[in-house]
Every structure is written in C-alpha cells, then in structure tokens.
C-alpha cells in the first residue's frame, strides 16, 4: 500500500513550453516520511501538484494504494499543503465556509493548531501568513486523507512555531499511519524529519 508515481512527465502549457519533469519515479509507503530536495525551479511543487491531482501528467501514472488517482471521487486521499497559503484559499470566502466545503473537521485539530474560532468568521486577508498556513494544515488533515504533501509549508514560520507544527504533524502521521512527502530547502530540517530523501537533481 503506497503512493506511487510511475514515469511522470509534465510540461506547463504555453509558448515557453518546456519539460519540467521527465520520467520521474517516486514511492511513499504509509508511515514513511520522504524528503524531496533540489534547487528552485526543478519541479518539486509541480511533482506535488501531479501527485495530488491538481495537474494531470502528460505521461506516466499516479497510483494511490494500487488504484489510479483519477479513479477516486470526492475528497482526494492525497492532500497538498502549499508553500503560499494566501494563494491556496478563495479570497472571497470566509475561512469557516472554506473549511466546511470539505466536510467536518475535528475541534481538537483546530485547537492543537491554535486556530481561534473567531478566525473562521474572517476572510483570508485578515490573517497573517503563518496563521493562514495553520488553517490550511487543518483543512488538509481531514478524515480520509492517506497521504500528505507538504510543500515548504513552514518556510514562512518562526522557529518555535515550526518545531510545534512538525511535532504535531509527525504525531498525526504516526497515529493515522499517513504517508508524508516533505519538500524543503532546509537541509537540517529534512535530516531531522525524514526517513528517506530523494534529490530531484540526480
């Protein structure tokens, strides 16, 4: 049982079209924590988008526990947390409505992430970047998620909040036996968090 990418190939449409990913393979099992490293522009975010169904590959397949990702309906079992939370939410929707779109979320989860109930009555622009990111983490951790893709999710947070969030996420990953993909430029962070590191540059 694992999240598998087989020979993924992809390029963005447009006149400057160029291959971002060329025959990339990747496997993450439940309970595994895979680090993705590589310089900017090497396709780390793009790979996450393909793994979570935000983009369809030009070639190759994504399998979730043996079944193609595109055959899943409803809430995607692979949830992505984005580097820029302000671009990951609808700016014209109150956060509470954004959260309810995907079904119920545990109260405990909101509490553990220090999300104040008052925030849910606000619009995204009324929260700071770090607050919004914690909200996005709560949104991704809904029931039914099997794999979590974290694309540089703590890069904008202070050190104490970073340590808090990762301690929390690792505990969730363990308790719910999730598979985790962590994209980060912070080498000491990957060293500390991951069971295995794949370098996209090689």
């Amino acid at each position: 049982m694992s999240l598998e990418a087989k020979q993924l190939t992809f390029g963005y449409r447009g006149k400057n079209r160029k291959r971002v990913l060329e025959s990339v393979d990747l496997t993450v099992a439940h309970g595994e924590r895979l680090g993705l490293a590589g310089p900017s522009g090497r396709g780390k975010t793009t790979l996450c988008k393909l793994l979570s169904g935000f983009e369809a590959p030009d070639g190759g397949t994504v399998l979730v526990d043996g079944k193609p990702l595109r055959d899943y309906r409803g809430i995607c079992p692979v949830q992505m947390i984005w580097q820029h939370p302000e671009t990951a939410v609808d700016p014209l929707m109150k956060l509470g409505d954004t959260l309810r779109e995907g079904g119920p979320v545990e109260e405990e989860l909101l509490e553990a992430l220090h999300i104040q109930p008052a925030w849910l009555e606000r619009y995204p622009a009324e929260l700071s970047g770090g607050e919004l990111q914690r909200f996005c983490i709560a949104r991704a951790l809904r029931p039914g998620v099997q794999y979590l893709l974290c694309d540089e999710i703590t890069a904008m947070l202070d050190l104490i909040t970073q340590a808090q969030i990762w301690t929390f996420l690792l505990e969730q990953v363990e308790r719910r036996d999730l598979g985790l993909v962590i994209v980060s430029h912070n080498a000491p962070l990957l060293e500390r968090l991951c069971t295995r590191i794949q370098d996209l540059d090689k």
């Binding site: 050190l159 104490i160 909040t161 970073q162 340590a163 808090q164 990762w166 301690t167 912070n186 000491p188 962070l189 060293e191 500390r192 968090l193």
Partner: peptide, 11 residues
Amino acid sequence: NALPQNGFVPI
C-alpha cells in the same frame, strides 16, 4: 533551541 540542528524543541 527550536532550530532543527539545536534540538528542535518547541516551547
């Protein structure tokens, strides 16, 4: 103390 290389301890 919260740096990943300095213990990664969250208060």
